[in-house]
Simulated scan of single mutants.
Amino acid sequence: MRIGYARVSTAEQSLDLQRDALQAAGVAPDQVYEDRASGAAEARPGLEACLRALRSGDELVIWRLDRLGRNLSHLIETAEALAARGVVLRVLTGAGAGLDPSTPEGRLMLRLFAMLAEFEREILRERTRAGLAAARARGRKGGRRFALTAAQVRLAAAAMKSKETEPDELAKTLGVSRGTLYRYVSPDGELRDYGRRVLKI
């Protein structure tokens, strides 16, 4: 039986691409286990359920090698445990695609690819830290951008003070959801935390 596993990453928060790839590889939709935790997260119930479901002779299909392990050692440990149980690991794309961890050559290549993936992630983290430090040195702070500009927050606050304003229509006009709008202003037009931060109050 083919069983699939998919997990989101920081850069890719949708599982659609992975689901499509797994189904194209012959995994039935009801045999795809999923997690929405980051790679470093300890708790991954989807992976745990997936590993419990696998039997000798089954094939575990993953989109990319880095979807499987929390880190380098966990990835290697998981892949080698699968091979010992007689489960075939199939990687669809990227480094590790086509390798067979049940063979000595496959295990060697798995370790090499995993080490390269870990090195690449560390380089990316280092670049991110350096970029944030450079931005802070120039007076900018990192983090998620606000959904509304200062002008939009002022407009929203003024509009919400009017009883004739429909919150859903206002949110649609501003290009956000009603919930997002309420993070910036209250139903009475009072500034909330996000709104005050945008206006630097």
Rank of each mutant, 00 (worst) to 15 (best):
R178G: 01
E120V: 07
R140P: 00
R183Q: 15
P45T: 07
Q31H: 12
A114C: 10
L108W: 13
A135L: 09
T93K: 15
D35N: 04
E80P: 04
K172T: 12
Q13H: 00
S186A: 08
G143P: 09
P45I: 00
D30V: 06
D168L: 08
L60F: 02
A137W: 01
S177C: 00
F119P: 02
M1V: 06
A83Y: 08
S73T: 07
A130W: 00
R2C: 06
Y194N: 15
A158W: 06
Y182N: 04
G195F: 11
E126F: 03
R90V: 08
R129P: 00
L155C: 09
I76T: 02
I3R: 14
Q13D: 02
A134I: 05
I3H: 09
G139V: 00
D100R: 12
D58R: 00
P187Q: 01
L108N: 13
R145C: 13
V27N: 00
F119V: 04
R85Y: 08
G46A: 01
F146A: 15
L92M: 05
I62V: 15
A97T: 10
D35C: 05
A79H: 05
G4M: 11
D100S: 13
A157D: 03
L54Q: 11
E118Y: 00
D20E: 15
L132D: 01
L15F: 00
P29L: 01
D20F: 10
P104D: 04
T165A: 01
A130E: 04
Q18A: 11
S56E: 11
E48P: 11
A24C: 06
A130T: 02
A84Y: 10
E59V: 12
G69Y: 05
P104W: 10
L47F: 09
F113G: 03
I3P: 08
I62F: 05
L51F: 09
L108P: 09
R136E: 14
L99W: 10
A11D: 12
I201F: 06
E80V: 11
D66S: 15
T128H: 09
L116N: 11
D168W: 08
R2N: 14
R183N: 15
A53D: 06
E59R: 12
L47D: 07
F113P: 07
L181Q: 01
